[in-house]
Design a protein around this nucleic acid. Structure first.
Lengths: 159, 159
DNA sequence: TGATATATGTAACCATATAACATATCAAGC
DNA sequence: GCTTGATATGTTATATGGTTACATATATCA
């Protein structure tokens, strides 16, 4: 199960797989995966962790792909709004999505020690969100679920 | 059930009740509810919605209780760290806690139309968080659960 | 090939949050 | 009552995160 992302894995192939999936999804939906957008996605996939907008911008600047904040934010907005990346509110940072194209509600496990971020599924119909809808009539359109703690490796290292 | 906070209620009595509960909790735990801290809590209770740190600071400034950001942030840090208020990451804003003193994991329902915020419980041991622990060994220390959508009143007004 | 929509470049700015250091207040022990 | 250490406040400056506004370019399609 790769929904939980703390295991070791073939990272270069997971970058390629991520890019391929997004390319295909863009082709199907008539979206333009322009050079900047593609490069930002690639950086997120390479980093395999939450990256700040300005951290990404710094890299883009070095590579001559734009030097002002809107360049990074626009690319990130594109990726996030089409489900190719997610924003981690807790960190004011962004990660590549592990299930691009699929409609899903992500839930994140954030290690406070090594900054690794794993994406799991949070079924909004179940658990407290479904309950809230049933009890109050609140209409959930979008949900943020983020847990901060220690990943298995860091938890083990401390014990 | 007042865990879900969209119903009409006697707001002045809920402000008093909130202040009383926090005062008592501070007395029991030897915490100093200083004038600034108390006033910030009162503002959050009065507002009954998520308020930004600078919005609070503006009011403090008018009242002559401090004029620089750290004044507001320190009071908010005190309230948050002792469970008397919560930060809504999604909004970069703060709300008074509805269950001060009790140990709990809050879950928020945020109306994008009227900005009302209701606090519900999210039992971290159940739902996806418990599952994540069982499957991966990730140690959850703190969880952020925030749903954005329409409260019953605004949903009704649109239909 | 011209009209429209979409994407990019850039400057200026606003919003959120913290670091660092000085000063004041409080509580406890002598 | 005075000293000492801990806690709280005041203030300056700065770091970090994000947006507005407007000009320019590129793509798409009739």
């Amino acid at each position: 199960m790769d929904a939980i992302g703390f295991e070791r894995h073939d990272h270069s192939s997971c970058i390629r797989a991520g890019l391929d999936a997004v390319e295909q999804s863009c082709a199907e939906r008539g979206l333009q995966l322009t050079p900047v957008r593609r490069r930002v996605l690639e950086l997120l996939l390479e980093g395999h962790r939450a990256m700040g907008a300005y951290e990404i911008l710094d890299i883009l600047r070095e590579e001559g792909m734009g030097s002002q904040p809107p360049v990074a934010y626009r690319a990130l907005d594109f990726l996030v709004s089409h489900g190719f990346a997610h924003k981690i509110e807790r960190l004011n940072a962004f990660v590549a999505c592990m299930h691009p194209g699929e409609d899903h509600t992500p839930a994140f496990l954030i290690c406070r020690s090594c900054d690794a971020v794993a994406e799991a599924h949070a079924d909004p119909a179940r658990g407290f969100l479904g309950q809230a809808v049933r009890e109050t009539g609140f209409v959930v359109e979008q949900a943020v679920v983020e847990a901060v703690g220690l990943c298995p490796r860091c938890a083990g290292a401390r014990a």
